[in-house]
Design a protein around this nucleic acid. Structure first.
Length: 104
DNA sequence: ACACTGACCTCAA
DNA sequence: GTTGAGGCCAGTG
């Protein structure tokens, strides 16, 4: 966590913070916006290790298939957070990207 | 510097 | 519709 290595993480923070309420985007898209188009996994890594108490809307980030990538209780929490902003998520965690995807 | 991990993605079958 | 293999590359220890 040196000064230089913070750039990717910082960009991810900034991009995720910019996702409007009621919309979602994908790990891959964030990676691309952050300037490293093939670092989709890293976006997940960054969000996984968010400091507790962060107000970043991490729940608005899903995978390319339009599904939540989390499991268990985390899955439930993300689903509730999305439903709370009127995003339609079925029991399988699927979302219609054509309707809720954020276009920057 | 090295080895390993993984909230991903693409493509092939 | 599914599954699996292979690649990707920023974190982590």
């Amino acid at each position: 966590m040196t000064a230089e290595n913070d750039t990717f993480r910082q960009r991810v923070f900034q991009i995720v913070a910019a996702i409007p309420r009621g919309q979602v985007t994908t790990y891959g898209d964030i990676a691309q916006m952050a300037g490293s188009s093939r670092a989709a996994r890293q976006v997940g890594g960054v969000l996984k290790r968010l400091p507790q108490g962060s107000r970043l809307p991490w729940h608005r980030v899903i995978n390319r298939k339009g599904e939540l990538s989390l499991q268990g209780e985390d899955f439930q929490r993300q689903r509730q957070a999305l439903l709370a902003e009127d995003i339609e998520v079925d029991a399988q965690g699927r979302i219609d990207l054509n309707r809720f995807r954020w276009r920057g």
